[in-house]
């Protein structure tokens, strides 16, 4: 149970970074931390105590043996790819914003109002 709580705390740390930080890059880091905590959570769901890797070198190799659930692993692999795309896009937008405004401070990036 304690791992799930730690995982949740990691999520909150990321959310704290997103909500309170004023630097664009730090916001992106906060989002990345949240993403890792969710990935960790998904991996923990599929974990089985003393389980082996779900690989079949020969047929029936896993018969009557505990093995970890492979589906969450496939899911987080997809989630990591998506996270890579989002983070790359966010970083490139942040660089472009820096070029336009000359700062990473979100308080000074405020041309949209109302």
């Amino acid at each position: 149970m304690i791992v799930y709580i730690l995982c949740f705390i990691l999520f909150i740390v990321g959310l704290y970074g997103v909500v309170t930080k004023r630097n664009l890059i730090k916001i992106i880091i906060g989002l990345a931390i949240m993403e890792y905590s969710v990935n960790l959570f998904l991996i923990l769901i599929g974990y089985v105590n003393n389980g082996t890797a779900p690989i079949l070198p020969v047929p029936d190799a896993l018969k009557n043996k505990p093995f970890v659930d492979p589906l969450p692993q496939a899911m987080i692999l997809t989630a990591i790819v998506i996270g890579l795309a989002t983070t790359a896009l966010l970083l490139s937008i942040a660089i472009r914003l820096y070029r336009k405004y000359g700062t990473f401070d979100i308080r000074k990036i405020n041309s949209l109002k109302g």
């Binding site: 890579l84 790359a88 970083l91 490139s92 660089i95 472009r96 820096y98 070029r99």
Partner: peptide, 16 residues
Amino acid sequence: AVSTIFIALVVFKDEV
């Protein structure tokens, strides 16, 4: 794709 992302970020940084 990963190489493209890296190169794009390098080019962006250089532009800035």
